[in-house]
Amino acid sequence: MTSTVLRAPASRPATGAPAWSARACSDSDYDDVLAFFSEPDFFFRTAEPDTRSEWEIRKLVGADTRLLLADDEPAGLYALEGFGGEHGCHYQLHLRLRAAAPNAWWHSAFEEIVRALTWKKELVRLAVQVGEFDGRGLAFARSLGLTEEGTLASVVRHGGQRYGYVFFARIWALTS
């Protein structure tokens, strides 16, 4: 199956954010994907990215994940999972950029992901879960102003200790 590259026709945003594009992961992208998971803090659906084997990474990535490209260079992964019935319009976002990506890129990627989703579907609630051990992820979620809903404590081991998952969400006003 050929993967389609999605790309904005024209101008680059003025803020210094890159020109984003995305595609479904094809076999030729897996070298980049495996390289992401070799980073010790690439917490994309896992608390131990750098010790995952290849089959496990393929399973974590799955059909719903998109390879994010910044100025045509692989920069990270994201996936949107629907929760409940179509009419609920609840989604959970998994987003991870590689370690070298500047912090500002996270905000810019999040905005473009939300914009693409709301182009075609109603969005009522978007949830993000971040491990307590994930400093970068927590800083990102808090800087976005997402509501911090609570922490499910002591559910995961990382670096020899127990940590919880912190739940963040944003709710949009109903328009339909």
Binding site: G85, H87, C89, E122, S176
Partner: peptide
Amino acid sequence: VPNSEQPRQ
């Protein structure tokens, strides 16, 4: 029949 393009209809 739910409207797949607009689930509220």
